[in-house]
Design a binder for these strands. Sequence first.
DNA 1: TCGTCGCTGGAATATTTATTCCATTTCTGG
DNA 2: CCAGAAATGGAATAAATATTCCAGCGACGA
Lengths: 284, 284
Amino acid sequence: MDAEDRMERAPRDFEALRGLILNRRKELPKRLAQVAVYALDHPEEVAFGTAASIAQAADVQPSTLVRFAQHLGFDGFSDLQGIFRNRLKERTGNYEERLATIRATTKQGSEDIAILNGFLGAASQSIDKLVQTVNPLRFERATALLADAETIYLIARRRSYPIAAYLAYAFGKMKLRYVLTGSMAGLDPEMLAMATERDAAIAVSFSPYAPSTIEQARQLGALGVPVVSITDNAFSPLAECAEEWLEVAEADFAGFRSLSASMALCMALSVAVAERRRRHAAQG
Amino acid sequence: MDAEDRMERAPRDFEALRGLILNRRKELPKRLAQVAVYALDHPEEVAFGTAASIAQAADVQPSTLVRFAQHLGFDGFSDLQGIFRNRLKERTGNYEERLATIRATTKQGSEDIAILNGFLGAASQSIDKLVQTVNPLRFERATALLADAETIYLIARRRSYPIAAYLAYAFGKMKLRYVLTGSMAGLDPEMLAMATERDAAIAVSFSPYAPSTIEQARQLGALGVPVVSITDNAFSPLAECAEEWLEVAEADFAGFRSLSASMALCMALSVAVAERRRRHAAQG
DNA sequence: TCGTCGCTGGAATATTTATTCCATTTCTGG
DNA sequence: CCAGAAATGGAATAAATATTCCAGCGACGA
C-alpha cells in the first residue's frame, strides 16, 4: 500500500512535482506547507543545499524535509532533491535556447511579448548604466545629509510619484520620520513652511520636470532645508537648487522611460540612511 | 608556502578557474589532466555529482579529485565543487559580468556603497530572472483580458502601492479608464461594488500579502470581474482567485525585496494593453 | 642499474549529511 | 473538555561522502 502509493504518486519531473505540490497545498499541515512554499520559491537552494541548510532557510527541522518528501511519495529528501537538480541540469543548456525562443516569438508577431522584452531590456540597461556611472562620493554625502535630518520631506509628482510612494513606505517601515507632499490638495505650501534647517528633503523629477516639484524644492532650499535631488541631468533645475544631487539616466523603450534604476537607487538610499542612523545611535 | 599558494591561487569564480585550468593544462600530471578535461567538458556533472560518481565518470579515483582540487589551490574537492555550483546558480546572461563590476566597486567602498551595489545587484538579478521565467502565453492572455475591459481597477497596498501608482499614471497618460483603490479611506467597497463583468482589475501583492488586497480581489472575482494578479508565488492567494496571474520573483538584498522587475513588468503590461486597444480600434 | 622523487590506486578514516525514532505538542471530533 | 490521531522538534542513528594515508609503481637522473 505504502510502496504502491509511492510508485504512483512520486512525480519524476519538475513540472509534475510543481503541479502535485500546488494541488496538495491546502491539505498540507502547517510545516509541510511552509516547506512547499519555500521549495517552489527557492528551487536553486533546494537543488544545491543540504537538508540542514535548506531546513534552516525554510525555518523548519531537517526531519520535516524528509517527511515532506515522503508525504509526496518520494523515498526521502534526497530523492526529492534529485528532481530539483535535474531541472537545473536540463535548464542550463537551455538558456540560449530560451532567448532564441523569445526572439522567435517576437518575430512571429506577438507584439505583447516584444513590448515586454523591450521594457525588460530597458530596465536592465538602466541598471547597468547606473552601476557604471553612479558617483559613490555623492551617494555617501546624500546619505549622510539625510541621516542627520529630523524629518525628511518627499517631493515627487506624476511619473516620479511612485518613487516617493516607495520611499514613504520604506521610511515608515524603518521608523524614519517623513512627510509626503502632494497628498492633500493645496496644503503643501503651509506644510513645507514648517520645515527647518534641521530637516531635509528628497526631490525627484525627470525631464519634463513637474513645475510643482521644482517650486517646492526651491521653497525648501530658500528656508535653508538641505535638499537631495534625484534627477536625470546636470542641467536639471533640481540639480541647481539642491544641496546634493544624484544622476539617474533611465533608458527608454517606445518613449516610456524605465523606473527600475531610480527605484533601486531609492531603495538603497533609504536603507543606507537607516543603517547610518543605526550606527550613529549605537556610537553616540 | 603551501598555504600562501592557496591564498593566491584558488580562484573564486568560474571564469578565473577555467583560465587557470587552461593555463596549467600542459604541466599537469596525467590523471590530473584527465580530471581537468573532464571538468571543463562536463561542468554540470561536477556541480551535481559526488566525488565518487565524478571519479567514476572521469575514470579516476576519488582521491585524484581531491588532489586535483588541492593542486589548484582549493581546500579540497568540496571547495572546488562550490565554484561549479555557484556558476549554475548564477548563470543568467551577462549577470556574472555585472556582479564582477559590482564586487570590484564594493571592495573599495564604504558601507553605503555596499548597500547601493547590493540593491543594484538585486534589481539586476530580478530582471534577469523575470526574463527567464516569464510565461509569454500568460502575459498575452493578461494583456488581452485587460484590453477588453471598460474600466480597470487597480488594487495594491503598502509595498506594492508604488506599482499601482505607476499604473495609474501610465493609464492616465494613455487614456485608459481606471480606478485606483485605497485612496479614500473606507469607500473602496462601494466603489468596487459598481464594477461589472465588462471591467477588469489588476491586483498586486507579494508575501506577506496585504489582507485588503486579497479581500478586494476576491470581492471583484465574486462579481464576475476578471482579475489579473501579479504576485510572487503560485501559492499566493492572489494566484488562486485570479483569472490570470503573472509571477515575479524579486531578489532581495538585506531582506528588502527589489521592485524593479515588477515595475518593468507593469510598464510593459500597460503599454501592451494600450497598444492592443489601438490595434483593435484601427481594425474594428 | 640503482636510487630518488613524484604520481597513482585503493583502502582506512574522518566528516558531513540524511534519516529514523520517540517524547511532546497541536489539532480534531465527539 | 477530553480522548485519540496527526504533526512536530530534536536528539540518536545510519548512510553517504570526502579526505587522508600509505604502499607500490614508474619516470628520470646519476
